[in-house]
Computed example of a mutant assay.
Amino acid sequence: MAHSTSRSAKAKRRAANAQPERISLYDEVTAKIIAQLEEGHFPWVQPWASGPAAIGGALGPGLPRNALTARCYSGVNILILWGAAIDRGYPSQSWLTFKQALDAGGNVRKGEQGTTVVYADRFTPETEKERARERGQDAKSIAFLKRFTVFNIAQCEGLRPSLAAEPAPLPECQIILIAEDVIAASGVEFRIGGDRAYYMPSLDVVQVPPQPAFYEQVNYYRTCLHELTHATGHPSRLDRNLKNGFGSKDYAREELIALSGQSAPSATLQ
């Protein structure tokens, strides 16, 4: 009996230790996303590269992927890796673990800092399967979350050239005449440059990043239409209240208006 009690105590201690780790990991990922929001970056929406990536060449299109297996990352890892690539100006969306870099014939450069990603899944302990069989019930699975570190291939050296190929580069510029006509006919001053997209009601000005900075170039025009829809609220046009605090109901309403203006005509841009 004492032996059984000892094993039970050990199991409880392991469970107690694992729970804070899982909570800590959730908090860590949440904090990263909140930090990006506070900086004005929306990694699941922003379709262009900012910072050094926008200056040195747009980040490749598509999802972050493993350079050795070509498998795309999923879930919250997409946001984590997009955010890391944007913040650090990596020109690639290909990533490797430290060991995979060695397996690929190279190594991570000394002093490079990796990016933490997570793996979430569920498993069913054998004891739970046995209990379910005895009682004729469905076995209950347990969720788990574990972290591991990856490095962008820009942080590595000596990698063999036969790794998963990067997506084909986008053309330097893709002109869609109907969208250009809409922009020209709007009468709104339109500026191209920087790494932010916005409409400034006080000056009645729209500014968007240059088209080559966008992962998918059609999103350049979608962004243009989004900001131009905000401009329809100017006092000289529909006179909507555009001085809304972030997170307020009026702010959300205005964003829905801009999204409808962006999405309604954008089907014709494909």
Rank of each mutant, 00 (worst) to 15 (best):
L59D: 07
L59C: 13
G62P: 13
L59V: 10
G56D: 13
D87W: 00
L59G: 13
P64A: 03
I55V: 06
G56K: 15
V76H: 08
I78A: 00
L79T: 14
A84S: 09
R65K: 12
G60N: 10
A70Y: 00
G57Q: 05
A53Y: 02
W82P: 06
G57Y: 04
A54D: 14
G51Q: 04
R71S: 12
C72H: 08
L63N: 11
R65E: 07
N66W: 01
G75H: 12
P61L: 02
A58H: 09
G60R: 09
I78W: 02
A58V: 06
I86K: 09
S50I: 07
D87Y: 01
A70N: 09
A67M: 15
G60K: 08
V76A: 09
N66R: 10
A67H: 14
I55F: 02
I78Q: 09
L68G: 01
V76D: 10
W82I: 02
Y73T: 08
A70E: 06
A70Q: 03
Y73L: 08
A58F: 00
P61F: 00
D87M: 07
L81D: 08
P52S: 02
A54Q: 15
A53N: 10
G62Q: 08
R88Y: 01
A84Y: 08
S74R: 13
L59M: 11
P61K: 04
V76N: 10
S50Q: 09
G83C: 05
G57W: 01
G75N: 10
D87I: 02
P52A: 03
G83L: 06
L79V: 11
G51N: 01
V76Q: 10
L59K: 05
T69G: 03
P52G: 02
W82Q: 04
N66Q: 05
L63A: 12
L81H: 05
L68W: 15
L68Q: 15
L68N: 15
R65I: 02
L68P: 11
I86H: 11
L63Y: 05
R88H: 03
L79Y: 06
S50D: 06
G57V: 05
R71Q: 13
A84F: 07
L63G: 09
G51S: 04
S50T: 05
S74M: 01
L63T: 03
W82R: 08
I55D: 02
W82A: 03
G75A: 14
D87R: 12
A67V: 13
L68H: 00
I78G: 00
L81A: 05
P64C: 11
R65H: 10
G62D: 10
V76P: 13
L68A: 15
N77C: 00
R71F: 05
R65Q: 11
S50G: 14
A70D: 07
I55S: 00
A58C: 12
L63I: 01
